[in-house]
Write a protein that binds this DNA or RNA. Structure first.
Lengths: 250, 250
DNA sequence: GGTAGCAAGAGGTATTTACAAACTCGAAAC
DNA sequence: GTTTCGAGTTTGTAAATACCTCTTGCTACC
């Protein structure tokens, strides 16, 4: 605990205390399961009052870093800090959580006329311009998924000139006033075909997780259809489902 | 604000204050968007100190009931932001939609002591009795999935004698006052091992969709852990994700 | 040898007090 | 007429203090 909190810093003292303790946990100076010094000692060590310290500790409980035991002390929570998304965890959120770097490799980016099937799914006229974006998604330069997205070109003028190696498709849609509201999805397990296996650097036939999503705005207009194929050994979807009372699993 | 907090009640004052304010909001005495009296007035009205009141207010922010504006006051938050209608189509709903008949074949139904891992996941003591239910789920007598569920036996007395070829696990839990509230889930693609392949009547190595769920009640107590393995060629999860507009609290 | 009870140490709750920072609004200055 | 300033109000942060409850371990008693 070398760092102290400083009154001449702009951040509130309790936030500085949060950072100090969180860092000590992350660096292993406070191993998982270990007990922290008593509150009164921590106060002295950090030169803050007990109220301020307890505000910091409360935040760390919220973050799942610590837990308290009445009469016994403060303990570093087990690393399984179940930090569940309340919707589907996005690719970059997964990367953040695992401390990895997310990136993309563009395979295809063009505007083509919509086929009958595409037109039907996205509620546009057959032959109307459709933006195709095909990317390999990587975590720390390891290919993890193939993302094939289609957007009606009319929604985002000039979309074919955006560099999606850097830009986020969702952010671009949002900046054009497109408001993703719901994503109707199907999820299934398939075998990798030769083409997919090549792009993901896996053996043909290995299991892949195929998620197809149709994203609609608040007026139920389709704005994006995407198919993401995840290498089964390299990715795991995380989400939280609300259980309606009538859901029966007979 | 008719009710007061009382020092001679067992609940902490700040918790009583939370209840009072939450009730006022629920009853419409504090309409959505309205401003609360200043903290100092609330302190006096509730006969508690400002620190105690602020602890209550902080909790209500966590619950999404209130929000504060520096220099302006406290406001009742719009209730419609925090809903997360992520839903997952259940096995029997899928059967209904496709006009098929859902059934189960029991492989294993017994009470065994919880292992360390199981105990940790379900927040019970290691060695405490755990109900294991292993079933093959069929659609029109075709095996489609293998369901392995674990429930703390204390939740449903006599659970080991129920015929789950007919009864619904969720209905049984509900009838015992267990209220499934949320299911934290991971979904991945794997290859079928020999045992699974036999039960599902597929070739070993074919892709399977593995969904693991931890179901918790409204108090965040785990009530059920289940792993369902779907034959990739025979089943497709259908779900709707809400795109959360939520900001991070960093 | 077992058990009840006490005391020390830990977190939990609550009060009082003080000052800082952000917002509102009206009055004065230009 | 517009801007600027400042007083007043309100939330945000922080300290010092007191006492309660729970856990643990030791001690003394039976």
């Amino acid at each position: 605990m070398t760092l102290l909190v400083r009154t001449d810093y702009p951040d509130p003292l309790w936030l500085q205390a949060v950072d100090v303790i969180r860092r000590d946990v992350a660096d292993g100076r406070l191993p998982v399961g270990s007990r922290l010094p008593p509150e009164r000692e921590l106060c002295e060590a950090l030169s803050i009052s007990r109220v301020t310290l307890r505000k910091a500790l409360a935040r760390l409980v919220d973050e799942g870093v610590l837990r308290s035991s009445h009469g016994r002390g403060w303990f570093v929570a087990s690393g399984g800090g179940t930090d569940w998304p309340n919707s589907l965890e996005s690719f970059s959120e997964t990367a953040d959580r695992m401390g990895l770097r997310a990136s993309s490799r563009i395979l295809r980016q063009e505007i083509v006329p919509a086929t009958i099937d595409e037109a039907e799914e996205l509620s546009v006229a057959p032959g109307s311009p459709l933006f195709h974006l095909e990317r390999v998604r990587l975590l720390d330069d390891v290919p993890v998924a193939m993302d094939d997205s289609r957007v009606p070109a009319a929604l985002v003028p000039g979309i074919e000139h955006i560099d999606f190696g850097l830009a986020s498709l969702y952010e671009r849609l949002a900046s054009e006033g497109v408001d993703p509201h719901r994503a109707d999805s199907t999820i299934e397990a398939r075998s990798a075909d030769d083409s997919l296996a090549t792009h993901l650097s896996v053996q043909p036939g290995t299991p892949v997780l195929v998620m197809h999503q149709l994203v609609v705005d608040s007026l139920e207009h389709p704005v994006l259809a995407s198919t993401i194929r995840y290498a089964g050994e390299r990715y795991r979807l995380r989400t939280a489902f609300a259980r309606s009372q009538k859901a029966d699993h007979r």
